[in-house]
């Protein structure tokens, strides 16, 4: 087990309206088995002992699935590994390193405090059509419509998005297209999603624009940083869905 001493440059911002700044902290005795967030826990414990305000950051399941954790670490969303911050371990760093820790940066993700941002824009996009309208109890037998394994797997791949927002954080345009396209794709591929296909694509894209996310330049940064390896092909599929919807739907 190696222990290390680190310098942390952490974004501190008391609330949404306040102006934030990077503050420097030294931390010692960090061992390489710790997860990155456990290192942050140790820092917070130290700060509290000294009577200083602990650093606020989002986190919950700490097993890479809830999508709560965020943090841009040394310029990369979720840090140097293609995983979530909670699954990043300190063995990815070495003694004496300086680590910059910043919040997701996007107009649509305002900072709440320190490293915590408001991602409710993602929810509002889902409200705009990320569902199949089926009332409880009115479903037919689950095996009534066969769905080829390839399609089911592909839909699953799109559905594994954890809604963390790393795609937005990584994109030079703070675009949310990987997130939005993953949901549109999942339902566009499945027979259950067909009835509302046009409405969904139009509604979700319109809401995405309204939230103030940027456009897609197809650089592939979102896909490269996505902890769940959501493919950029989803974005092409969304473009297709959107155009098809615009050209064929009855919404004037």
């Amino acid at each position: 087990m190696n222990t290390m001493n680190l310098t942390l440059k952490i974004w501190r911002q008391p609330n949404t309206a306040a102006k934030g700044e990077l503050k420097t902290y030294s931390i010692s005795g960090i061992n390489d088995h710790m997860s990155f967030l456990e290192m942050m826990d140790v820092l917070n414990e130290n700060l509290q002992k000294k009577g200083e305000d602990p650093v606020v950051f989002d986190h919950d399941c700490r097993e890479g699935i809830c999508g709560a954790c965020s943090l841009v670490i040394n310029g990369r969303p979720h840090g140097p590994q293609q995983t979530t911050t909670c699954q990043l371990h300190m063995r990815s760093f070495k003694d004496g390193d300086t680590i910059y820790i910043e919040p997701w940066r996007a107009k649509a993700f305002p900072v709440i405090k320190d490293l915590m941002v408001n991602r409710s824009a993602f929810d509002r996009i889902q409200h705009a059509g990320g569902y199949v309208s089926v009332n409880t109890g009115s479903a037919q037998d689950a095996n009534a419509i066969p769905i080829g394994k390839e399609i089911a797997d592909e839909a699953f791949n799109s559905a594994t998005c954890i809604g963390c927002g790393a795609c937005v954080a990584a994109c030079k345009n703070a675009s949310a297209m990987l997130f939005v396209s993953a949901k549109i794709s999942q339902l566009a591929m499945l027979p259950q999603g067909q009835a509302e296909r046009n409405r969904r694509a139009e509604g979700m894209v319109a809401q995405m624009d309204q939230e103030g996310f940027g456009a897609c330049t197809n650089t592939g940064a979102c896909e490269a940083e996505c902890p769940k390896q959501i493919s950029i092909s989803n974005i092409a599929r969304m473009n297709r869905e959107y155009l098809g919807a615009k050209l064929s739907s009855n919404a004037v």
């Binding site: 199949v132 089926v134 109890g137 689950a142 066969p146 797997d153 699953f156 999942q186």
Partner: peptide, 11 residues
């Protein structure tokens, strides 16, 4: 119900 919602179960 879940299949009708578009839950991609293994097939």
């Amino acid at each position: 119900q879940c299949v009708a919602q578009g839950v991609p179960f293994a097939r």
